[in-house]
Simulated assay, not measured.
Amino acid sequence: MPEVIFSGPAGRIEARYHHSKAAGSPIAILLHPHPTFGGTMNNPIVHAMYQMFQSRGFSVLRFNFRGVGRSQGVFENGAGELSDAASALDWLQSFNREAKICWIAGVSFGAWISMQLLMRRPEISGFISVAPLAKHYDFSFLAPCPASGLFVNGEKDTVTSPEAVHSLVSKLKTQKGITVEHKVIPGANHFFQDKIDELTKTCSTYLDKRLAAEGQL
């Protein structure tokens, strides 16, 4: 997991990157939880998903939002972090110009940012949104949701309940051929304490299903 530094809108961005040597490999970008509540690219869920994509032949990038770790700048509560994510995707694509499949995954606050980037970048073909803050942030911009993906949260999530995420998913307008799924991990809280293996298995099953349908497995 080599460390990389690249330029972002607020200065340098600190990241970790795995490059797949196979020509035309798919790519994935991971967005971490809320910076002011301790969220970093080393979050256990982000790290587990990084390994999940890596094991399936993806070139994959995780990075620190502005003001986190060695990334420059200060927290901007969304707008700046979205710009950071766009710059990170630009950097990833610059090293993988032949990639035809692009995925994005975000955790909590990162899930909200990831869905905004999804709306702006039509090349993103799939998403995994973990513990999205459906009660705290407005997701109405997903009208319609442009790609199929998975929302997943914990049964005992007291930050955003499964019911709130279910309501979000049920209200999403989708284009023809787009399917948005919602999975609930039994017994899991917002941080998936002691449940990250179950979370990873659920996400892996979904990812494998999608890749098989697209002829990538």
Rank of each mutant, 00 (worst) to 15 (best):
K171T: 07
L92R: 05
P44S: 13
R210K: 10
R97Y: 00
K173Q: 15
R16M: 12
G110S: 07
Q216V: 15
S87N: 11
F75I: 08
I128L: 05
L142A: 10
Y206F: 11
W112T: 08
R62A: 02
M49Q: 14
D138M: 14
H166W: 10
N189S: 04
A28R: 10
L133W: 09
Q175G: 14
N77F: 13
K21I: 14
T174N: 06
V4Y: 08
Y137V: 11
E163M: 05
L82A: 10
N96C: 09
I45C: 08
T40W: 08
H166K: 14
P146R: 07
A111E: 05
F75W: 14
S204Y: 03
L30Q: 10
S204K: 05
S59Q: 08
D208L: 00
H32P: 01
L117K: 00
V152G: 02
L30I: 15
R70C: 06
L89F: 13
A28L: 09
E76T: 09
A164Y: 10
T40A: 01
K195T: 02
S114L: 04
D84V: 00
F141N: 08
F109H: 03
S71M: 04
G78A: 11
Q93N: 09
G187L: 04
K183C: 04
M1W: 04
P144L: 03
F191L: 12
K176H: 04
P9R: 13
I5Y: 12
Q51S: 09
V130F: 09
T200H: 05
A147W: 06
P132T: 11
L30P: 04
D197S: 14
S25Y: 11
G69S: 03
G149N: 02
T36F: 03
P132D: 12
H190T: 04
Q216M: 10
R56C: 05
Q93E: 11
I178P: 01
R12C: 06
H190V: 04
F53D: 01
V184G: 06
F139Y: 15
I185W: 03
V74W: 14
V130S: 05
A86T: 14
V68K: 01
S204W: 01
F6K: 07
A79Q: 15
G8I: 04
A85F: 03
T158N: 12
